[in-house]
Computed example of a mutant assay.
Amino acid sequence: MTGKIIGSIIVITALIAGGAIYYLQLYAFYDEVSATGTGDVQATLLVTQEPEPILYDNFRGIDANSSPIRYRACFTTTMSLPMMSETYVPYEDAEPLVAPGWFDCFDAEEIGAALEAGEALAFLGRKNIHYGIDRVVAVMPDGRGFVWHQINDCGEIVFDGRPAPDYCPPKPEGQ
């Protein structure tokens, strides 16, 4: 009898812990990002190498303080892909990260497939938005756009514990 009680307590505790972990990973740490109308969607200009706001509408975004790569956003734009490719810095090796299932406007698999097929284009939003992290903007031919944070080359090296190469900016104090 005692074994059944102890077994039941272990199973109930495991279910509660599993439910708490699931909730914390998918809901608790994320906050909605409110559109400011100016800096929400930016792309880096080819000419100046500086980020500039692009035309957008229907912005939805989420972010979390627990990690610099949890940022995701969706928007629409009337800008054409040919015009954007002549204006903004392309982003090589863009790999969208999976968003929580409840943030349904951001489908990383669809975005990744469109980027691989050359249907969508990715641009540098802002280099080193956090040290070693770039903001990436991708746009589909139908005007749907997506934003996420991605670890850049310097971030991969430094986050692995190796010294930063000469071409990387110095790591900020306290990080």
Rank of each mutant, 00 (worst) to 15 (best):
F59E: 14
D63T: 14
S66P: 07
S66D: 14
P68A: 07
P68R: 13
I69L: 15
I69N: 06
R70A: 04
R70P: 07
R72G: 00
R72Q: 12
F75M: 14
L81T: 06
M83E: 15
M84E: 04
S85V: 07
S85A: 07
S85Q: 07
V89I: 08
Y91T: 00
Y91W: 08
A94T: 12
P96W: 03
V98N: 14
P100T: 11
G101M: 01
G101L: 10
D104C: 11
D104V: 04
C105W: 05
F106A: 04
F106Y: 02
A108V: 04
E110N: 12
G112P: 02
A113Q: 12
A114T: 09
L115H: 11
L115R: 12
L115T: 02
E119D: 14
E119T: 12
E119R: 05
A122P: 02
G125M: 10
G125V: 11
R126Q: 10
R126N: 05
I129P: 00
I129W: 01
H130S: 12
Y131N: 04
G132N: 00
I133A: 07
I133V: 11
V137R: 03
D142Y: 01
D142R: 03
D142V: 07
G143M: 02
R144L: 05
R144Q: 11
R144H: 01
G145Q: 04
G145K: 00
F146M: 12
F146Q: 13
H149Y: 03
H149T: 13
H149P: 14
Q150A: 14
Q150I: 13
I151P: 10
N152Y: 06
G155D: 12
E156K: 09
E156C: 11
F159C: 15
F159S: 15
F159R: 13
F159G: 09
